[in-house]
């Protein structure tokens, strides 16, 4: 029964995404217009929920594996202990830093809302907008890090600008005026917020977050990536040993490409080497890569069809 339900859900899900892709966004059937995929964004977003659950699965897996190693004191339990402690420490610091930022910056979000309100206000009611803006801005919380006086000064300047434009530039296009006001709010926000963020960056959580990310995580990642340089040289050395006809061809092609790439090749050997390198890349290498891509795409398409129609026996039950 469960198998049957799974197959039905798979089919319906696949059918929706297939139709969403092939059907035009708007079409008519029996004199009624149909907007297929009207809720596509919402449906796609709901799939994010699966990822959220999966993150939890990953965390449980880490805690189970390393927790059992620590509890049974197996070999390498100290590494597992370091991993678990680092995990909880990073989690605490990142969460605390996020909560800290959110609580300090919540009063600034109102300004964003006002800016959006101004830019989306109907063109016909500029005077109404002026009145609304006055009420909204004056009742708004003073953003954190800004003095009450500076905020009131900003509001009064903003209103003066709007009134001036309404009285003198009668022919001004309303959309541009809204844009001017909206930009003024964003400008005020950007300048004042930058100062406030500088102050926030000095808190314990923010500094710890920087140490974890910039001082540990990124350098460790860079060290791993730098290993590639050595591995590439070693792998190249192994593959350049001429053991067969294919290896000889590969060696020759690689040599021509290396010589064509470096300036010394055209300077000391032949001026046509860069052109020859380009010819090998465009006429031999690219078609081979495209052929692989075509093959993989067709195979992926056919496997998707089999999955959609639940034709395979499947690797799991």
């Amino acid at each position: 029964m469960i198998n049957f339900i799974t197959k039905v859900i798979t089919f319906i899900g696949g059918l929706y995404f297939f139709l969403e892709f092939i059907l035009p966004k708007k079409f008519s059937i029996f004199q009624s217009e149909i907007f297929f995929g009207k809720y596509h964004d919402q449906i796609s977003l709901s799939l994010v929920l699966i990822s959220c659950v999966a993150v939890g699965l990953g965390v449980i897996n880490i805690l189970t594996i390393h927790g059992s190693v620590i509890l049974s004191k197996k070999s390498g339990f100290s590494s597992s202990l370091v991993l678990i402690l680092s995990f909880f420490f990073s989690l605490f610091i990142q969460s605390a830093s996020w909560i800290n930022k959110e609580s300090h910056l919540s009063s600034w979000k109102d300004l964003d809302a006002i800016s959006t309100y101004v830019s989306k206000a109907p063109d016909t009611s500029l005077e109404k907008l002026d009145n609304n803006l006055k009420i909204v801005l004056e009742n708004n919380r003073t953003p954190e890090g800004v003095s009450k006086e500076s905020y009131l000064l900003f509001i009064s300047n903003l209103r003066k600008e709007l009134e001036f434009n309404l009285n003198t530039n009668k022919d001004i296009f309303p959309t541009s005026l809204k844009e001017i006001i909206s930009n003024k709010i964003s400008e005020f926000k950007n300048i004042s917020l930058r100062e406030h963020e500088k102050m926030l960056a000095n808190t314990f959580y923010e500094r710890s977050e920087k140490v974890i990310l910039n001082g540990l995580f990124f350098p460790l990642g860079a060290s791993m990536f730098s290993l590639l340089a050595f591995y590439i040289s070693y792998a190249a050395y192994r593959s350049f040993r001429i053991r067969s006809l294919e290896a000889a061809c590969m060696m020759l092609a690689a040599l021509l490409i290396i010589l064509g790439q470096i300036p010394q090749g055209s300077m000391y050997i032949s001026e046509s080497l860069p052109e020859f390198r380009l010819w090998i890349m465009e006429n031999l290498s690219t078609p081979a890569l495209r052929a692989i891509a075509f093959g993989s795409a067709v195979a992926g398409l056919s496997l998707s069809l089999r999955m959609w129609l639940s034709m395979d026996k499947g690797s799991f039950n």
Partner: peptide, 18 residues
Amino acid sequence: PLRDPESLALIDLTLKSA
């Protein structure tokens, strides 16, 4: 070893079935 936690449950099922 895995990089994508979403596939964890599927891999678990595959191994268990095998």
